[in-house]
Amino acid sequence: MTNGTNRILDEFAKMMTDAAGAAQGVRREFETLFRTQAERMLHSMDLVQREDFEAVREMAIKAREENAALQARIEALEARLAGEAGSKPAPRTRTKK
Rank of each mutant, 00 (worst) to 15 (best):
L47M: 04
G86E: 15
A13R: 14
M1I: 01
A82R: 10
A19T: 13
M45N: 03
A69N: 08
L42Q: 10
T2H: 08
L33P: 01
E39A: 07
E11Y: 02
F12P: 00
L81M: 13
M41P: 00
A90Q: 09
Q71H: 08
R28K: 14
R57C: 03
A13Q: 13
Q71M: 09
M41A: 11
K88W: 03
M1S: 12
G25H: 06
E39H: 08
L42Y: 03
G86C: 05
A22T: 11
A20C: 05
A79E: 13
R50P: 03
T5S: 11
E78S: 05
E51P: 00
D52V: 02
K14W: 05
A72H: 05
V56W: 06
R50L: 13
M59L: 11
E66W: 00
S87E: 15
Q24S: 11
A20Y: 09
E65S: 09
E78A: 10
T2R: 11
Q49P: 02
A90R: 08
E66P: 00
E31G: 02
A85V: 08
G25M: 09
M15A: 14
N6R: 12
K14Q: 15
L81T: 01
F34V: 06
A72G: 04
A19V: 06
N3S: 04
N6H: 07
N6K: 12
R64E: 15
F12Y: 09
N3M: 01
V26L: 14
R7M: 10
R64D: 15
G21K: 12
I61G: 02
L70V: 03
L70Y: 02
N3D: 06
P91K: 03
V48N: 06
F34S: 14
A13P: 00
